[in-house]
Amino acid sequence: MNGAELRARIERLGGAVTSHVWRLGFATRFLGYLVLHSGTALRRFRLTVKEVYFAGVLSLVIILVSGLFVGMVLALQGYETLQRFGASESLGVLVALSLVRELGPVVAGLLFASRAGSAITAEIGLMKATEQLSAMEMMAVDPIARVVAPRFWGGVISMPLLAALFSAMGIFGGYLVGVQLIGVDAGAFWSQMQAAVDLQHDILNGVIKSVAFGIAVTWIAVFEGYDAAPTAEGVSRATTRTVVLSSLAILALDFVLTALMFTGGKGG
């Protein structure tokens, strides 16, 4: 490849990087504007409540069912390994800690991103494509305050609740399989769990994670919808981007937060 081609390729690469950076900056300003103009969403709380319904309540089925199954699988897999070390009584600890610290926030976040996140993006994108957002602008109503902000807060409120429900269902699923099916002692199951799971260290950190994921996923969802090209193809691409970006963001954030919260601890 000659010099000119090489140069063209590098220019394209640089262009791609700058455009991504530019987009990130735009998205951040968008978030700032959105938060500043959330007055309507909070004063007319009805709007936000409606969005909590669409993002949270309609995700309940998938969250609860998935939570149950994940908890049951954890118990099955966990028992298989633990009983080799004679530690099968720690099954409750294994299930609870895995869920509360990691699987609850992360899996619930991923499910939320694909179900609610994509729906939000599609909705906002379609409103943009059919000029509904412009119509609102023309009627002197700020579409970001009226349409985007309630969806953002609806998602942020729903996410931690969904993660908690996921973890609770998972623990219940673990109990069903571990105690009822396999026969681990119920007393040991619960008492060891209670001894090992700490409110501040484990549960609170799990909640913090789910709040962070909620903000990340909903931010990506509303931004992609708002920024979508106003055509059918543009909306479909934006929806795909939401799911992919949100999933990556959750996993990356999870790593960072886990490293901050859970590693080491002072001592030996």
Partner: peptide
Amino acid sequence: IDLWVGIFVAAGFAALLFLALKAGNLATF
């Protein structure tokens, strides 16, 4: 809608409460 959202939020908080009380301990609190 309000009813369902109310149920959802209540259930979410109940789950959190369950986790805090039955699954964990309040040692550091």
